[in-house]
């Protein structure tokens, strides 16, 4: 469904600065109807790779095919038309503050060239999918983080896309909301069969909704695995970064409380003596 072929994205340096390579020769096949997770630390190039798929960021080299169409070979006009097939949601929702929830969703249809008469009805239908029909007339400022992301999901879905790109969709919401947003994404993927790509730095996110995962580091896809294989213990990360990312333990060095209080007590006593001039 999505075929990323030898994609590289280099950013030119400003002035005397050296440029840098955000995405370095990545190839990835994402089957139709699957959920692909892309996990990595900040600056690993995962968001750039996601933006390469709908060409918000045009790759410096390589090809991106969505449903057989090579997007990298399209002109502006054709690319815009293809983008109606590719929904996208963002970490910070990127809703328009001065438009209500339903108007935000409608805008997506307007850009897709849908006639005005059909827009309102379809926008309401999309809001129903994310259980926000009663918030249709609310402005984003009156919605919670989770509700805003659900409006954004409705906005991305309303044009009936084949692909949904999610850029850190749960990084700006609390843990309980994270679960709810992910449940919607999972339901939508299953019920509508939309191929979904989720970029995140949270292992939990990919574990709970992805079928396949790519680990990114310094612009490269350094590990790939199926979540089933990870869960069943058949997959073992080969790289340092992979082991670190797939490990729930943060490995913080820390003295247990009992010993720590003895320490501090002793240290405190020593300091008191010092102050007293002993």
């Amino acid at each position: 469904m999505i075929s990323i072929r030898n994609v590289s994205t280099r950013f030119a340096g400003k002035g005397g600065e050296e440029g840098f390579t955000a995405v370095d020769d990545v190839s990835l096949e994402i089957p139709a109807g699957s959920v692909q997770g892309i996990i990595g630390f900040s600056g690993a190039g995962k968001s750039t790779l996601l933006r390469n798929i709908n060409l918000l960021e045009r790759p410096t080299s390589g090809h991106v095919l969505v449903d057989g169409v090579d997007l990298t070979g399209l002109g502006d006009e054709e690319l815009r038309r293809e983008r109606h097939q590719i929904g996208m949601i963002f970490q910070h929702f990127n809703l328009l503050n001065n438009r209500t929830a339903v108007e935000n969703v409608e805008l997506s249809l307007k850009f897709a060239g849908v006639k005005k008469a059909a827009r309102r009805r379809r926008a309401h239908e999309a809001l129903e999918i994310v259980d926000l029909a009663e918030k249709a007339k609310s402005y984003p400022a009156k919605l919670s983080g989770g509700q805003k992301q659900r409006v954004a999901i409705a906005r991305a879905l309303v044009t009936k896309p084949k692909v949904l790109l999610c850029d850190e969709p749960t990084s700006a919401v609390d843990p309980r909301t994270t679960a709810s947003v992910l449940q919607y994404l999972a339901d939508i993927n299953q019920q509508l069969g939309i191929t979904t790509v989720v970029v995140t730095h949270e292992l939990n996110v990919v574990k709970s909704i992805a079928d396949n995962v790519a680990v990114m580091d310094a612009g490269r896809a350094v590990e790939r695995f199926a979540v089933d294989d990870l869960n069943s213990g058949r997959f073992h990360p080969q790289t340092e970064i992979g082991r670190y990312l797939l490990d729930d333990d943060l490995h913080i060095t820390r003295t247990p409380l009992a010993e720590r209080s003895r320490h501090t007590a002793a240290k405190g006593a020593a300091e008191t003596k010092e102050h007293a001039g002993v």
Binding site: L79, R83, H84, I86, M88, F90, A152
Partner: peptide, 8 residues
């Protein structure tokens, strides 16, 4: 960016 992703 959101608008561009929607093909505006």
């Amino acid at each position: 960016e959101a608008a561009r992703s929607m093909g505006a």
